[in-house]
Simulated assay, not measured.
Amino acid sequence: MSKAEEKPESKPTGYRSGVAARLAGLPVETLRVWERRYGVSDVDRSPHGQRLYSADQVRRLGLLKRVVDQGHAIGTVARLAADELIALAGAAPSPAGPGAITQTLKIAVAGTALARRLGAIRTSPELDIVASCSQLEGAAEAMAGVAADVLLIESSEMSADALPQIQAARRAMQVRTVVVLYRFCDSATVRRLREHGCLVARAPSDAAEVAVLCSTALTGAARPPPGPLTAPPPRRLDDQALAALSSASSSINCECPRHLADILMMLASFERYSYQCQNRNASDAALHEDLGRSAGHARVMMEQALERLAYAEGLPLPDKQ
Rank of each mutant, 00 (worst) to 15 (best):
K3T: 15
A4I: 15
E5H: 14
K7E: 15
P8K: 15
E9A: 15
S17G: 13
A20Q: 05
A21T: 13
G25V: 10
P27T: 04
T30S: 14
V33L: 06
V33C: 05
V33Q: 13
E35G: 05
E35V: 06
R37P: 05
R37C: 06
Y38V: 12
V40P: 07
S41A: 15
S41W: 00
V43T: 08
P47R: 09
G49A: 02
R51N: 01
A55Y: 00
D56H: 13
V58H: 00
R59Y: 00
R59Q: 13
L63D: 06
D69K: 08
Q70L: 13
Q70E: 09
G75D: 13
R79H: 15
A87Y: 10
A89C: 12
A91M: 08
A91D: 05
A92H: 08
S94V: 03
P98V: 11
I101E: 07
Q103L: 08
Q103G: 04
A108D: 05
A108T: 06
L114Y: 02
L114D: 02
A115M: 06
L118N: 02
A120F: 09
I121T: 15
I121N: 07
T123V: 06
T123E: 01
S124W: 06
P125N: 11
D128G: 08
V130R: 07
V130A: 07
S132F: 06
Q135C: 11
E137G: 09
M143C: 14
A144C: 14
G145C: 11
A148R: 01
A148V: 09
E154L: 10
S156A: 06
E157C: 02
M158L: 15
S159L: 12
A160L: 03
A160W: 01
L163Q: 11
L163D: 03
I166L: 09
Q167L: 10
R170W: 02
R170L: 06
V178Q: 09
V178D: 00
V179H: 04
Y182S: 03
R183P: 01
S187I: 11
V190R: 14
R191V: 10
R194K: 03
R194Y: 02
E195I: 07
R202W: 14
P204T: 02
P204Q: 07
A211Y: 04
V212N: 10
L213P: 02
C214H: 03
S215K: 02
S215P: 00
T216F: 01
T216D: 02
A217W: 03
T219N: 03
P224W: 10
P225M: 14
P225R: 15
P225E: 13
G227Y: 05
L229C: 14
P232M: 01
P232W: 05
P233F: 10
P234D: 14
R236M: 09
L237V: 02
L237T: 06
L237Q: 07
D238F: 03
Q240K: 11
Q240I: 11
A241Y: 01
L242H: 04
A244E: 07
S249V: 04
S251E: 07
N253S: 11
C254D: 12
P257N: 07
H259N: 11
A261Y: 05
D262N: 10
L264H: 06
L264C: 10
M266K: 14
E271L: 02
E271C: 10
Q276F: 03
L287P: 00
L291E: 03
A295V: 06
G296K: 05
Q304D: 14
L306S: 06
A310G: 13
G314I: 04
G314P: 12
G314S: 12
L315V: 12
P316A: 14
P318C: 02
P318D: 04
